[in-house]
Amino acid sequence: MGTVEYIQHHLTNNSIGEGFWTFNMDTIVVSLLLGALIVFAAARLGKQLESGTPGGFQNFVESILDFVSTNVRDAFPGHNPLIAPLALTIFLWVWLMNFMDLIPVDLLPYLYQLITGDSHAYLKVVPTTDLNTTLAMAFTVFALIIFYNIKIKGVGGFIKMFLFHPFGKFFVPVNIVMTLIEEVSKPLSLALRLFGNMFAGELVFLLIALIGGTLAVGAAALFWAPLQVLLDLGWLIFHLLVITLQAFIFMVLTIVYLGMAHDEGH
């Protein structure tokens, strides 16, 4: 397999259906499994909560909860019991989906090919390198933004926001288009940032994996294989930072956007 085919093969989803109704099964299954993992871990922990001296895992989860609730308190002006759980879900879920990037790129596809017996079966294990996932999450947040905009400000207030923001009352047509652009850009920037960062990260992992795949032949492996390990380790450590940061930014931006929807003076 050539290098181009190798990369293309790794970046193609295992999908069924065609056209608009294409379902990327690997994305759906992996993200659902990760969501189920969160629910399972939370349910298990919920059964054995200790109030005295919490164990290691409870301690860890409590520190995450604390971190998220601090951020919500910092960035969110109003009171809404939905925001903190939403932020926590987004943070954990996006982080776990991003974390799939750190699993060796060939491991899961190889196992999948062994199980199915089809040596050309596609499997893209990182759900966030699929634009569908990130856009779906961004549109969910966008729907919440519009819902709370209308709920807090009323239909009149929502229309007023379109008419008189940002240039005052003398530029009403421009304001409408401008606010429209601003609103559309919110889910776009959320989705494209996460997708872009994760896709690029995955691509670098693939390129590093190609060092071993193409150059390490015979005695040359003595030089290239250690280099691959070194590069992989370096990028892995850096990427661990990136995935955390991206999950964090997705969470904070959700809070900020929803906070703006709750801010009546806006």
Binding site: A75, P77, S185, S189, L192
Partner: peptide
């Protein structure tokens, strides 16, 4: 509360670039 410094929000600066790009893209879309 609003005047209090919120250092966590500084992370949003990381996304200033993508915000700018997405505004232009959204402009084209609209």
């Amino acid at each position: 509360e609003q005047a209090k410094p919120k250092p966590a929000l500084n992370f949003l600066l990381l996304s200033a670039g993508s915000m700018f790009t997405s505004m232009i893209v959204a402009g084209f879309l609209v």
